[in-house]
Amino acid sequence: MHNLREVYTEGKNRLQKAGVQSYEFDARQLLFFVFSIDANQYLLNQSMPFGEEEEKKVNSYFEAIQKRSEKIPLQYITGEQNFCGLDFYVNENVLIPRLDTEVLVEKILEYEEPGQRVMDMCTGSGCIAITLQKLGGFQVMAVDISEEALTLARKNAQRNQAQVTFFQSNMFEQLSNTSKVDVIVSNPPYIESKVVDELDDEVKKYEPRLALDGMEDGLHFYRILAREGKRFLNEGGRLYVEIGFDQAEAVKEIFGAQGFLDIQVYKDLAGLDRVVAMHR
């Protein structure tokens, strides 16, 4: 007969042997997920022998450990990720929301007024759009090329009781009849194609390349945002984009060449360039 501490220890050891760097954290999170417990419940019950129901979950736990050993991202196993204090469904059709992207949302919440019309381009899981609507009171429309991503984003909006309108479009191509907005925000694909192939297995093998690949120089989608975005922005409207840590100068040049003004760069918690903001 097992107990929580025994199965956690075994799970942790298996992940360590598989070379998973965050083996302790991941084994614990999978334990909480499979057995539907939290940290306090674990501490209180870690030595208590399993009953029949708990024993049935042991195989499920080690199946989850095996998936993580194969470098399947933790969030794709649990199907969830927290972003700005809200919980989101995630799967292999969307990029896993990152802490870095919270800076993008925080800047909009800091500088923009509730009630403004916002367009989230390349919405993926919908985490940016939904968070802005819930925490900022914005009128939000969210756009993505992937119908699979939009299906999940709609589920996330329902889960978080957010009023967001979703559109399927290849960037701005299918949005010709859309009213202008006050803010455009985007976390577009921005990794160079050749670099995508060099990423860790759990990123390049499991996260959608469509959400990662910024074409040859990583700047393809910024050029589209700069060229087409201003047509959808009200006069004086602002545009916010997430960038790679080494892309600030190139992105500033792209948007400056299209007439955007007051271009600002903001850093993430690690002190790296992460957000570029400007106005029309």
Rank of each mutant, 00 (worst) to 15 (best):
A157G: 13
I77G: 03
G115N: 01
G218Q: 01
Q46M: 15
I77F: 06
T9M: 14
V275K: 09
P73T: 01
G85E: 02
Q133M: 08
Q75R: 05
V143W: 02
F33H: 15
I254K: 06
E70S: 12
I37D: 02
L212W: 00
N177H: 12
E63C: 08
L219S: 00
Q258V: 09
V183K: 02
Q75L: 09
Y240G: 06
A64Q: 04
E53C: 09
N82T: 07
F167D: 02
N160M: 10
R209K: 14
F172G: 06
V34E: 02
A211G: 04
Q264H: 12
G259S: 01
D87V: 12
M121W: 04
L272K: 12
G214S: 01
I130S: 03
G271C: 11
E102K: 03
E80A: 05
L109Q: 00
N3V: 10
L199N: 00
G126M: 11
T178L: 15
H220N: 07
M119T: 01
F138R: 00
I254N: 09
S36R: 12
T9K: 13
I108M: 08
S146R: 08
Y89K: 15
L95P: 04
Q258R: 03
E148S: 14
K71A: 11
F83Y: 04
I72Y: 03
G51T: 06
I263T: 03
R154G: 04
V20G: 08
A162N: 00
T165K: 14
C127I: 10
L239M: 15
G229H: 00
L4Q: 01
E207G: 03
D213I: 06
M119L: 15
F167R: 11
P189M: 10
N170P: 04
D100I: 10
A129H: 05
G229P: 09
S36D: 14
A39F: 14
K267A: 13
E192Q: 12
E80F: 13
F255I: 09
V105H: 01
M141K: 07
Q139A: 09
E55Y: 07
N234H: 08
Y240K: 02
H2R: 10
F25R: 07
L261I: 08
I263S: 07
V276K: 04
Q247A: 10
L210A: 08
Q66N: 09
K12F: 08
S47D: 14
F50L: 13
K205V: 06
R227L: 14
E147F: 12
G137L: 13
R231N: 14
R68H: 07
G11T: 06
E253T: 12
L175A: 06
S60W: 05
K56C: 10
K134E: 03
H220G: 01
K230W: 07
V265I: 13
D273I: 13
V275C: 14
S179D: 12
E110Q: 13
E192S: 06
Q133W: 02
N59E: 15
L43V: 10
K71Q: 13
L95T: 03
